[in-house]
Amino acid sequence: MNVKSSMKLAGAVAIMALAAACSSTKATGPDVAATDNANSGVTTSAVTPGSQEDLEQNVGNRVFFGYDQYSLSAQAQATLQRQADFLKQYAGVNIQVSGNCDERGTREYNLALGARRAEAARAYLVSMGVDSSRITTVSYGKERPIDPRSTEDAWSLNRNATSTIVNVGA
C-alpha cells in the first residue's frame, strides 16, 4: 500500500491549518507570557461570532502547563470552561486540540507529553458537556513552538494545549 498520495492530500489540508496557526500566533504574543489568554465578556464587534478569531480573542484558545506537567491549573480550567460554553453556543463548530511542549526534553518523550496535554484539555471539555465527537487531538511535541526564543518566557508559552476550529457546520 503506497500512501504517498494520501500524504499529499493531507498536506493540502495541513497548509490551511498551518495558515490558521500562524494568525493565532500573533494573538498570543510574548507579553501574554504564561497566563491563559482570557478576555471573557469583552466582545469586540469586528469579530465574527463562532469564528477562530472569536475563540482566540474572546474565549482563549490556549491553556498552559508547568514543566513536564500535564495537569490543568485553575486558570486553564476556567479557559476550558469558556471553550466549552463557546462550543455549546456554536453547535456546528468542531475543534482540534494540539498538545505542545517546550524544547527542554527529547523529541520522542515530548511527543508523548504533548499527547497527554491535548488529552487533558479534551477530557475537561468533554466533562463540561461537549460531545467528544466534536474534538480531535494531535501532539506536536516540541516541533511547533509558538515562541522561537530559548527563554523561560518562551518555554512557558510553548507548553500548551491549543484549540483550533477545524470546521464550521450549518
Binding site: M7, A10, V13, A14, I15, A17, L18, A21, Q96, L111, A115, T136, T137, V138, S139, Y140, G141, E143, V166
Partner: peptide, 10 residues
C-alpha cells in the same frame, strides 16, 4: 521514521 502532520496524529 515518524511523519508529523498538522491535522491528524503523527
Amino acid at each position: 521514521y515518524m511523519a508529523l502532520f498538522d491535522n491528524r496524529p503523527g
